[in-house]
Design a protein around this nucleic acid. Structure first.
Length: 306
RNA sequence: GGCGUCGUAGCUCAGCUGGUAGAGCAGAGGACUGAAAAUCCUUGUGUCACUGGUUCAAUUCCAGUCGAUGCCA
């Protein structure tokens, strides 16, 4: 990698830390565009509850991968990786730097380092495994995994049905152990990467989250969720901010309780994001206020100097 | 003012007839390869309101003080 190679600046961090406005500010300073790496802002029907960039924000900087899907579309990390790499190739013909921002750590990793080539889920097999879990319990999944992929059985969290089902699904589809297809080797990318993590004191972050949820309700989250309620079983809608309201529509909980629950679950989501990003030692951490600190990074100084 | 009830973890509360305390929620930490805003794992010491008394021993019994609350006036 040389400084002639184009640069991807990743702006990550927990939800409600201020990634959107920071990334827009940064992209404008660098005269470039934004790739969104947010697995829920992909869906055009989910605007308020995902805190997607507003129309004003979208008009300030060209965004990619925002609202490009409909909730019924099936999508996954692998497709995201492929499509973003394609988009970056185009953008790098006219830009020396591109900003990617979002809170979906797995998706960011897929773009930066790649993921192994594994089969997409087969709906029939996945259904069969769900049935198996429902009727025979997790022990049955664990047993099958020990038989077909003893190596992975030792590595995986055996208490996590989602992990077990995915592994078994791949084993059944390919006929070989899931673990034999996992290399976890980083791919070479034709660009350099700088990873920025935005961070706020926990207390402040949680205050932001609570306020933002209230703001979402004022902005019409209730109505947005109600309109999507008939589609509540879609994966896209298995999302904080929507499923709590669905519980309310079902008559299970009061509206007040649902809103409180959204706040709690959003805080937990933020915590999980922090755990994910903190583990990756490549991240450089900044306050969302500290744009000058970010602009002083050598990789960015060099871009703006010319 | 009188009578009663209550005062235990950030919150809601359990603690039978005395042996220094435990649940849910919140919170904290972690995992993570096509569901990832998903999915899963781990994690509960606090002057038991305060001050005295009884007792080998008091969160638990007794008295008083303070606070909360209900009914009566």
């Amino acid at each position: 990698m040389t400084s002639d190679d184009p640069l991807l600046v990743v702006v990550a961090g927990p939800t409600a830390v201020g990634k959107t406005s920071f990334a827009i500010d940064l992209a404008r300073r660098l005269s470039t565009e934004i790739i969104s790496a947010d697995s829920r802002q992909f869906y055009q029907e989910m605007k308020i509850g995902t805190a997607a960039p507003t129309t004003v924000e979208l008009s300030q900087v060209k965004h990619h991968f925002v609202h490009q899907l409909s909730i019924g579309d099936s999508y996954n990390v692998s497709r995201f990786e492929e499509e973003v790499l394609g988009q970056l190739e185009k953008l790098f013909t006219t830009h020396r730097v591109v900003v990617m921002t979002g809170g979906s750590g797995l998706y960011i990793n897929a773009v930066c380092h790649g993921i192994d080539l594994l089969p997409d889920p087969d709906p029939v097999i996945r259904e069969a495994l769900k049935d198996m879990l429902a009727t025979s319990g997790i022990a049955a999944l664990q047993q099958e995994l020990r038989n077909v992929d003893p190596l992975y059985a030792l590595q995986v969290d055996m208490a996590n049905p989602a992990r077990l089902m995915r592994a078994l699904e791949v084993c059944r589809m390919t006929g070989v152990p899931y673990s034999s297809l996992r290399s976890n080797k980083p791919r070479k990318r034709p660009f350099r990467t700088v990873k920025l993590g935005l961070e706020l004191p926990r207390e402040l972050l949680y205050r932001n989250i609570n306020h933002r949820v209230d703001a979402m309700m004022e902005a019409g989250l209730f109505e947005e969720a109600l309109a999507l309620y008939p589609n509540r079983h879609l994966n896209a809608l298995n999302t904080v901010g929507y499923r709590e309201l669905f519980d309310h529509f079902e008559g299970l909980v009061s509206l007040e309780f649902a809103v409180t629950k959204i706040k709690v679950n959003t805080r937990r989501y933020a915590k999980r994001q922090l755990t994910w990003f903190k583990k990756d030692r490549e991240y450089l951490w900044f306050s969302p206020e500290d744009m000058s600190g970010v602009m002083a990074l050598p990789e960015l100084m060099e871009l703006t100097a010319k």
